[in-house]
Design a protein around this nucleic acid. Structure first.
Length: 480
RNA sequence: GCGCCUGUAGCUCAGUUGGAUAGAGCAACGGCCUUCUAAGCCGUGGGCCGGGCGUUCGAAUCGCCCCAGGCGCGCCA
C-alpha cells in the first residue's frame, strides 16, 4: 500500500529522509563568500554566501564530509589603501573603516602620490615586514569580524579561514612557473611584467589570452596568489573541490584552470551565479545604490516583529524577538535561494521582505500549523502507521505523492549543485499541505483510523518540510 | 567587436531535462474566521513562452539567425 509505505518510510528515516547517501565516505571542500574585507556584505555578495551555505548543507545532507573555507583577501591594492587610511585601527569600528576606505579610494584616484604610497605599503607587506603585516592583520581582522557577524544572522558559518597573505611566497609557485615556461607560456612583457600566455596551454580565444602574474616591481597580482591558494586547497585531498563564484569570474576561472592543469594540478569545480540587480541598475558601492545585508535584515526583523507582536502579545519580548529573527532570516534567504542561480534577479525590497505567498515564512507557517495540530492531539502516536491507512481524498494523495518525490529532488539538486529546486519543493509541499489542511479535518476526522492516518501524514509532512528547510538553512517554526 | 549567461501573465519566478489544456505568488476585483493558526483559503480576469527559420509524430525545452538585458575580455580582486 503506497500511502502507508511512504509515510512509514518518512517517519522511519526522520531527519535523514530525502537523503540518498550519495556522498557517503566522500570528502568535499567548499569555498564560498570570500568577500574582500573592504566592504560590508550587500545582497549581491550575499547571494554567494547563501548559495554556498545551502550547497554545503545539501552536501552534508547527502552525507558528504564537508569542510567550508573562506578565503580572506587580506592583500592587494585595495586593502593596502584601506590600511593606509585606517591610521590607528584600534579606534575604528567596522563601519568607520568602510567609510575610510571609500574616502581613501577616492583620494587615490586624484592623488598619485597617495596611490603610490599604497603600492609601497603593499610591497612591504609582500616582503614580509612584520610590522606592516601586523598592521594589515589588525585592520582586516576587524573587517572580517564585522562581515561574519552579519552573515551569522543568516545562519552562515565557516570551518576554515585561509589568509591570502599566507600564500604570497608559496614555494609550489616555482613549479607552476617552470611548467608554464617549459610550454612557452611565460614571458616578460615590454613593461617588465611577468605574463602568462594561455594560448600555449590550450586557450583558443583571443580575449583572455594573457594573464599578468606579477607587476614590474615584483609584487604579485591576485591571480598569482590565487594559484598558490588553489593548489593548497587541491592538496588537502578532498574528493570534491567546489568554489562558488559570481559569473564575472567565469573567464578568470577558466584561465586559472588552464594554468593549474598545465602544472599538473586539478582545478576546482566552479558553481556560478549571476548578479542581483536593482531596478536602477547594478549595485555600486561607489554610487551608493546598494542594499546592505545588515540593513535588509534589520528591516525584515522590524516587520516580522510587528507581526509577531500582533499574533502573540502575551509572549515575553525576548521570545518574540527570537521568532522575528527566524522569520526575517527565512524571508531573506528564501527570496534569494528559490531563484535559479544562473538568472539575474531584479532585487525588489518589498518582495524579499514579504511574508505572504511564495516565501520562506509561508513554508514556516505551514510547519507551525502542523506542529499545532500535533500539539493539540497531545498523546503520542504509534511509531508505525497502521496497515489500515485510509486515504480517500485527492488532497491526501497529492501530498503523499509529493513527499515521495523528495529523495529524487535532493538527488538532482546535489548532482546539479543547485539548491533552488529544493526551495521549489518546499513551497509546493507547503501548498499541498495547506490544501489538505483545509479539506481534511485531522483531530475531528470521521473515524479514529482516519484520524491516526492523518496524524501520521502530518508528522511525515512536517518532517519532510523540516528536512527541506534545513537544506536551505531556514528554521521550521513551532509557532508563528 | 568577440565569448559566456538570461528572456515565460502588468511585476517576481516555476516548468520534473522533448510529452497531453504552460503553472505559482505579488498587484487588481469578488467572497471565506461560533471547527485543527486569516503570515491562510476559494473564485474572476490576465500568455505570439523576446522574434524568425528549422529538427521532430510532438518544442517554453533541441539547432541556426536576429533583437533586448547581464557579465567578461593584460600592472582590480
Amino acid at each position: 500500500m503506497f500511502a502507508q509505505r511512504i509515510v512509514a518510510e518518512v517517519l522511519r528515516r526522520g531527519e535523514g529522509y530525502g537523503g540518498n547517501g550519495g556522498g557517503r565516505g566522500v570528502t568535499a571542500l567548499v569555498e564560498h563568500t570570500s568577500i574582500n574585507p573592504n566592504a560590508s556584505p550587500h545582497v549581491g555578495r550575499a547571494r554567494n554566501a547563501m548559495i554556498g551555505d545551502a550547497l554545503v548543507r545539501l552536501l552534508r545532507f547527502e552525507e558528504y564530509e564537508v569542510e567550508v573555507h573562506y578565503y580572506v583577501n587580506d592583500m592587494g591594492r585595495q586593502i593596502a589603501l584601506l590600511v593606509l587610511a585606517c591610521g590607528e585601527p584600534e579606534r575604528l569600528t567596522f563601519d568607520e573603516m568602510l567609510q575610510q576606505y571609500v574616502d581613501a579610494n577616492e583620494r587615490a584616484k586624484n592623488d598619485p602620490e597617495f596611490a603610490a604610497q599604497g603600492y609601497e605599503l603593499l610591497a612591504k607587506m609582500e616582503e614580509g615586514d612584520p610590522e606592516t603585516k601586523a598592521r594589515f592583520d589588525r585592520v582586516t581582522s576587524v573587517c572580517l569580524a564585522g562581515q561574519l557577524a552579519v552573515l551569522a544572522r543568516l545562519g552562515i558559518g565557516y570551518d576554515v579561514f585561509d589568509r591570502e597573505s599566507a600564500y604570497v611566497r608559496d614555494p609550489r609557485l616555482q613549479g607552476v612557473l617552470d611548467a608554464l615556461r617549459a610550454k612557452g607560456g611565460l614571458f616578460t612583457d615590454e613593461d617588465e611584467r611577468l605574463v602568462a600566455d594561455l594560448s600555449k596551454i590550450g586557450h583558443t580565444q583571443d580575449e583572455g589570452r594573457y594573464l599578468v602574474l606579477m607587476r614590474a616591481n615584483g609584487s604579485s597580482m591576485y591571480a598569482y596568489r590565487d594559484l598558490a591558494y588553489t593548489i593548497d586547497k587541491a592538496g588537502r585531498g578532498a574528493a570534491l573541490n567546489l568554489i562558488v563564484l559570481g559569473e564575472d569570474h567565469k573567464l578568470y576561472a577558466q584561465q586559472l584552470g588552464l594554468i593549474l592543469e598545465a602544472a599538473g594540478y586539478p582545478p576546482p569545480e566552479p558553481v556560478y551565479y549571476a548578479y542581483i540587480l536593482l531596478r536602477e541598475g547594478k549595485m555600486s558601492t561607489r554610487e551608493g545604490n546598494v542594499v546592505l545585508l545588515s540593513d535588509l535584515l534589520d528591516e525584515a526583523v522590524a516587520r516580522a516583529g510587528q507581526k509577531v507582536e500582533e499574533q502573540w502579545p502575551d509572549f515575553p519580548a525576548e521570545e518574540r524577538r527570537a521568532m522575528a529573527e527566524k522569520v526575517a532570516a527565512a524571508a531573506v534567504r528564501f527570496a534569494i535561494l528559490r531563484v535559479n542561480p544562473q538568472k539575474n534577479v531584479i532585487f525588489d525590497l518589498e518582495q524579499s521582505l514579504s511574508f505572504n505567498g511564495d516565501t520562506g515564512p509561508y513554508v514556516q507557517y505551514s510547519c507551525a500549523r502542523i506542529a499545532s495540530i500535533l500539539r493539540k492531539h497531545g498523546e503520542p502516536l504509534p511509531a508505525e502507521p497502521s496497515a489500515d491507512f485510509p486515504t480517500d481524498s485527492d488532497a491526501e494523495w497529492a501530498l503523499i505523492t509529493k513527499l515521495a518525490d523528495f529523495p529524487a529532488t535532493v538527488e538532482t539538486a546535489a548532482r546539479n549543485r543547485n539548491t533552488a529546486p529544493v526551495a521549489q519543493f518546499a513551497l509546493e509541499t507547503a501548498r499541498l499541505f495547506t490544501t489538505f489542511y483545509h479539506e481534511c479535518p485531522v483531530l475531528n476526522a470521521p473515524t479514529p483510523a482516519v484520524r491516526d492516518a492523518r496524524l501520521h501524514l502530518c508528522q511525515a509532512a512536517l518532517q519532510t518540510l523540516k528536512n527541506a528547510l534545513g537544506i536551505l538553512g531556514l528554521e521550521a517554526m513551532e509557532r508563528m
